[in-house]
């Protein structure tokens, strides 16, 4: 079942074109990778998919909703981990989770139990009552990961999820993401890290210059995906591929 559909998205910030005919679909229960170099349009795409930005042209559907028309309802149903965004400086992680829980309408008991679970999973127990501004960047990223999953959404958009995390926690987070997708949920991972995409994604869209160039199924190793990625980037740079000409292939 298609859970997310994007067709011919276009968006520009002044004279800079961010999206130029972006098209792809995401199926329910998969871990979908969104792989591209810096400035490829990944974050802009997530902004539109979660109703934070209005596209200049094109169609988008998330969980049967139009995020442009119903941005709040869309964000109620999905989880979002923004790229490089720290949690609010002057709240503690516990208070921040209370804030998120109240905004998302979670029951107090449910919230308490999930805070405990996540604190144990990411080793945050000793830091729950320290102001976020005084946490390390890695700890802040753990807090942000937790807020995205606190309401256990069926679809989660995560932008560079493993940044600032130590190797051990990176492995824990990767394992959790796989487990979460296995439970029937959908994960949309935006990254420029080929190893991450190869390790956890069922399918990977390679994004270059604001358009999806190819959708591929990695074989679990990074080499083939790396080759495909470099090929797409080079082809896009040297020839200027037509917008929205993404092909679908298996490895």
């Amino acid at each position: 079942m298609t859970i997310c559909r994007v067709d011919g998205l276009e968006h520009a910030f002044g004279s800079v074109t961010a999206l130029d005919g972006m098209s792809f679909t995401v199926e329910a229960g998969e871990c979908f990778g969104f792989l591209g170099p810096n400035g490829a349009g990944k974050t802009t795409s997530i902004g539109i998919l979660t109703g934070q930005l209005t596209p200049d042209a094109g169609e988008v559907e998330v969980l049967g909703l139009d995020p442009t028309a119903t941005p709040v309802e869309t964000r109620h149903r999905v989880g979002i981990l923004p790229e490089q965004q720290p949690p609010p400086s002057f709240l503690t992680p516990r208070e921040y989770f209370e804030f998120v829980g109240q905004v998302r309408g979670l029951e107090e008991a449910t919230l308490e139990s999930r805070i405990d679970t996540w604190a144990a999973r990411l080793g945050l127990h000793g830091k729950l009552d320290t102001l976020n501004t005084d946490l390390s960047r890695g700890q802040q990223q753990k807090v942000m990961i937790t807020q995205a999953f606190l309401h256990e959404p069926e679809l989660v958009f995560i932008d560079e999820p493993l940044v600032n995390l130590d190797p051990l926690v990176q492995e824990q987070v990767k394992a959790f993401l796989l487990e979460y997708a296995d439970a029937g949920n959908t994960i949309f991972v935006s990254t420029h890290n080929i190893d991450v995409a190869a390790a956890i994604c069922d399918r990977v869209a390679i994004v270059v210059d604001g358009a999806c160039r190819v959708v591929t199924e990695p074989d679990g190793t990074a080499d083939a995906l790396r080759h495909r990625f470099l090929e797409s980037v080079e082809r896009g740079a040297s020839q200027g591929m037509p917008a929205g000409s993404g092909e679908v292939s298996g490895e």
Partner: peptide, 14 residues
């Protein structure tokens, strides 16, 4: 001073 509209993008608020 310690806030940005963008930081609310992760939540279901307008």
């Amino acid at each position: 001073q310690f806030d940005a509209v963008e930081s609310y993008g992760a939540y279901p608020v307008t």
